[in-house]
Computed example of a mutant assay.
Amino acid sequence: MPITNKDRQIAENFSVQQSQPEKRDQVYYNSLAVLAVNHYCQWMDISTDLKESDSWNPIKQSLGDLADLSLTNLGKIECRPVNFDAAAVEVPAEVWSDRIGYLAIQFDEGFTQAKFIGFLEKVESEKIPFEQWRSLDNFLELIEKLETVDSDHLEVNLGNWLQGIFDHTWTAIETITQPSDLELGWNFRQRSRTSSQTISNSNTSEIERVKIVSLEPPGTEMALLVGLTPTTLSELDISVELYPTQAYSYLPEGLQLMILDQTGKSVMQAEAGGSEKLLFKFSGESGEQFSIKIVLREISVTEIFVIESTV
């Protein structure tokens, strides 16, 4: 993979913002590795977003050894740089989580070419010999799998919800909070619901539907609750809540809930750190599209919503 003059200039611009020589070198190497992977992904038609990557933020660069590249709607790939005379890849423990995988990139002595050493989906060591890295085909297979999971979800038209029309996967809350389920840890029984109502003339009624979301490992299930309240003929107040489905339990550590705009950019994001639920509230207008993305380690689920009409 060729490294261009522009690539080296970008890496240099990042590195000079660091005060310590060792940190400048680290940022320079990391930036070149990220750019090499970004070029490769572009050639393979894998959508990326450099600006959403922590490695592209000078402040975060100064706080950690980060070389992540955000793949649109899929997660982050870690791009670890390797010196020309090294025989192993260094992967700091701080990047062992929140990554869908790891790519190792070795530079030549003059930083004019980058060679892909290989791919790993998970790492548990700070030094990994070259022979333990797997083929790039494994990286492409992972991307194909994640894109398949992501594309399994069709758009949900919230305009239909306002007319009382619901997909069978989105159910009324009452249907899953029967007496046998009263121990579920959602606090649903303490709240007044109007899930199956259509909108009244006053435009003040709230519609809420829930969907059970399954992630790996098997048995990891959560309840995704979406609520709508029309405020004008063209605008909705929208609430998004995520709960564990087990009694007195908490959301998995490290689980992320994101709201994406129609370009796939994250506009709201929260991470569960022993919390009982995650909650977002925002507004949407007729014609807009947004997505709800749930990420746990290398697995993600995305639900796409479109607001066709709020009348």
Rank of each mutant, 00 (worst) to 15 (best):
N73S: 12
V311K: 10
S196N: 15
Q42K: 15
N157R: 03
W43I: 08
T177Y: 09
E253L: 14
T231R: 06
W170V: 04
S55A: 15
L296A: 08
V34T: 04
K277W: 14
G273Y: 10
S239H: 03
I10D: 01
K265Q: 13
L35S: 04
G101V: 12
Q26S: 14
I207E: 01
W96S: 08
G185S: 12
I259T: 01
A11C: 10
G274Q: 09
I165L: 11
G284D: 06
D65Y: 08
E121Q: 12
A272G: 12
F116M: 12
L74S: 02
I207G: 01
N13G: 10
G254N: 05
R99E: 10
A270W: 00
K23T: 13
T232M: 07
D25Y: 09
A247T: 09
Y250N: 13
G264F: 04
F116W: 08
V149M: 07
E141I: 10
Q26F: 07
T177E: 09
E52V: 03
K277I: 05
Y102G: 14
A36V: 03
L215Y: 07
E12C: 04
I143P: 01
L225H: 00
N157S: 07
G264Q: 06
G219I: 14
E206G: 02
V37P: 00
G254C: 08
Q26D: 11
R80L: 15
F84T: 10
Y248R: 13
G185F: 04
S214D: 11
D152Y: 05
S309F: 03
A36N: 03
Q42N: 14
E121M: 11
V82T: 02
E94H: 13
N38Q: 12
S200W: 04
S125T: 01
G110C: 08
I292Q: 00
L66N: 03
T310C: 15
N201A: 14
L63P: 01
C79W: 02
E298M: 09
F282R: 00
W170Y: 07
E147C: 08
G164N: 07
I199V: 05
R99Q: 15
F290A: 04
D98K: 11
R134C: 13
F280W: 10
A88F: 07
S286Q: 15
V295Q: 07
S15D: 04
T245Y: 01
A33N: 03
N5S: 13
L255K: 02
L66C: 09
S70F: 11
Q246A: 11
S275M: 07
D108K: 06
V91T: 01
R8S: 10
Q289L: 08
S266E: 15
Q106F: 07
Q17Y: 00
Q178R: 15
S214V: 09
H153N: 12
I294C: 04
L69N: 03
G254V: 05
R80D: 00
N30S: 09
L162D: 02
Q20L: 15
R8P: 07
E288Y: 01
S200H: 06
G159A: 06
I176K: 05
L120R: 05
E271W: 10
I304D: 03
S195F: 06
V210T: 02
K60A: 13
F280T: 00
V156Y: 00
V34L: 11
S180N: 12
F116C: 09
L251T: 02
I173K: 01
Q246I: 11
N57A: 09
I259K: 01
D68F: 12
S180Y: 11
I199Q: 00
N157I: 03
E206A: 12
L236M: 12
S195L: 06
C79P: 09
E124K: 13
E288R: 00
